[in-house]
């Protein structure tokens, strides 16, 4: 899932200082699961904003809505009848959701309430770890299911650097060396040959905005956009 962190309160407060009526829009998918931008986080943030603005003698009227997914037109539609009543929208969705919302209401100032952080896994309640950089050319088949692009601090493709340190990365003893883990796992699977071969330079595909049209879903409209 996409993992996000709530933005510092002062930054959010500063975004909204000139607005009297703001709609806080949560997203019920990734950011809700990672406890950053779901219904509950919307309520907490609104309570904070309400109190802070009262203390400033600059009260704010806050609306709250959490939709299933802000990255999906089908759900965004629920906001159409509400947005007009507000001066601005504060979105707690990931960066994609925020942009899709802002694109739908181009006249309306839209602000981010979270910092979108990574694609990751749920280690425990409230504890997430990055696992994927969406590079568009997955090498997990070669590397025993451990991503060197994400898990190696230098994103190396051909084994560890000289800083690999008793199984840890040079940046921190708490950060495992991805290539150490890859070696150990491949070794157990008798697949070390995989990493003795030289992996050629990567054709980076994440250097410009990407579009995916799944096979069988091509239309005159989406192929024209390409």
């Amino acid at each position: 899932m996409i993992v996000a962190k709530r933005k510092p309160f002062d930054e959010i407060k500063d975004f909204l200082k000139d607005y009297k009526k703001v709609l806080t829009a949560g997203c019920g998918t990734c950011v809700a699961v990672c406890l950053a931008g779901g219904e509950k986080e919307v309520a907490v943030l609104n309570a904070e904003l309400d109190m802070a603005r009262r203390l400033d003698d600059n009260p704010i009227e806050l609306g709250a809505i959490t939709i299933e997914r802000q990255c999906d037109r089908e759900y965004l539609e629920a906001l159409d009848s509400m947005v007009g009543d507000y001066d601005a929208v504060l979105s707690l969705a990931c960066g994609a959701g925020i942009q899709f919302l802002a694109e739908r209401y181009p006249e309306k100032p839209v602000f981010p309430g979270v910092d979108t952080t990574f694609i990751g896994v749920n280690q425990d309640v409230g504890w997430y770890e990055e696992r994927c950089r969406s590079c568009s050319s997955c090498v997990l088949g070669l590397t025993a299911g451990i991503c060197p692009v994400t898990m190696c601090a230098k994103g190396l493709y051909n084994g560890p650097c000289g800083g690999t340190n008793k199984g840890s990365c040079e940046i921190s003893k708490d950060q495992p060396c991805a290539w150490y883990m890859i070696y150990e796992r491949l070794s157990k699977q008798n697949r070390l040959d995989n990493i003795l071969k030289i992996t050629p330079v990567q054709d980076w595909q994440n250097q410009k905005p990407r579009t995916v049209i799944q096979p069988g879903y091509k239309t005159s409209e989406n192929s024209a956009e390409k």
Binding site: A153, K154, G155, L156, Y157, N158, G159, C161, G162, G163, E170, I171, I198, T199, P200, V201, Q202, W204
Partner: peptide, 27 residues
């Protein structure tokens, strides 16, 4: 060489490049 990670240096928040790795550089 790969190069030490930028977090050790005087600009720890720099964006590193690592477009290619040291073995690919040799090649």
């Amino acid at each position: 060489l790969s190069g030490d990670h930028q977090s050790f240096g005087d600009h720890p928040m720099a964006k590193s490049v690592f477009d290619i790795d040291s073995i690919q550089l040799i090649g």
